[in-house]
Amino acid sequence: MLNYTLRRLLFAIPTLLVISFIIFVILDLAPGDPTGQLPLTIPAEVRAKIRESLGVGEPIHIAYFKWVRGFFVYEPLYWLDQIGITIGDPSERARIISYATRGPVFDLILERIPQTLWVVGLSYVFGILIALPIGVISAYKQYSWFDQLGTFISMVGFSVPTFFTGLLMIVIFSVQLGWFPSVYDTTLDVNSWDTFILQVKQMVMPVAVLALYNASQISRFMRASMLDNLTQDYVRTARAKGMSEKVVVLTHVLRNSLIPVVTVIALGVPTIFSGAIITEQIFRVNGLGQLLIIGIQGSDFPLVQTLTFIFAILIVLFNLIADVIYGILDPRIRYD
């Protein structure tokens, strides 16, 4: 397993390099201009100067080389530097700089991680926690009213777009009832009971919207997988052994059914980081998803390139993790 993992990791490096280059080329070909958002009152000559100062229009191989050097060499060195290990001359290093903020892209990304993890990550966790029992019970009591209701709710959660559920929640809970803020305060510093309550309050709506969405997907997977297993002979065996229904469902069926579900869950983790663009916009959570969208709108290529590439790394990584988990959970799979 270790060998397999290492081999896969090694293989991932050239894959990712190719991916990064492809992203770069696509972004380079994409129309758009970082000065496109400037007011029209700024004359074209000034725009040309600005573009030049940003380094727009450099030949692609040079721009790519600079970015790769920034991503793989300068940024790691910078962060080593931050923890006290200095290699080389820090002042020589050009970090990857965003066009729009003129600040280092990595600082921006780092600033976004807390709210992304809190809101999107937590909604994923809640989604899973809600989905698993619902999926299990729905399958166990297939076609019961519970199952029908579960199916209906997941259809709704699945097909009604989050901007609608989000807006609906705002109208009900912020406008009408005034229970929760409609705008997420990213500067809130949780340091007391009161601020904790505030944090919880501002997280309720976005987390609920996203959790519903996640739960509907995962509960469907869970249900299908449970149904697959419930009719297997080994379940009958377990019953014939005189095992209690609890043991039959929870140890035999659930454990086997979880294997594919856990994989799906692992594969879904990168989507946490790519954020929930729409939900973030609605509640102004301003996490990684919103950062990406702003980057795209403003043609902030260094930002978009870096973020997309980080997502690519996460996707490759979690694919590997999913495979490894699968191997650990399912004794039938052996990697060597």
Binding site: Q232, D233, Y234, R236, T237, A238, A240, K241, G242, M243, S244, E245, H252, R255, N256, I259, L329, D330, P331, R332
Partner: peptide, 26 residues
Amino acid sequence: DPKALREIRPRMQMIFQDPQACLNPR
């Protein structure tokens, strides 16, 4: 009832057609 049934279960067993499917793979 389920409890009494469970108690009597050990006395009657089954051997299945598909030996692969009847064993919990995990």
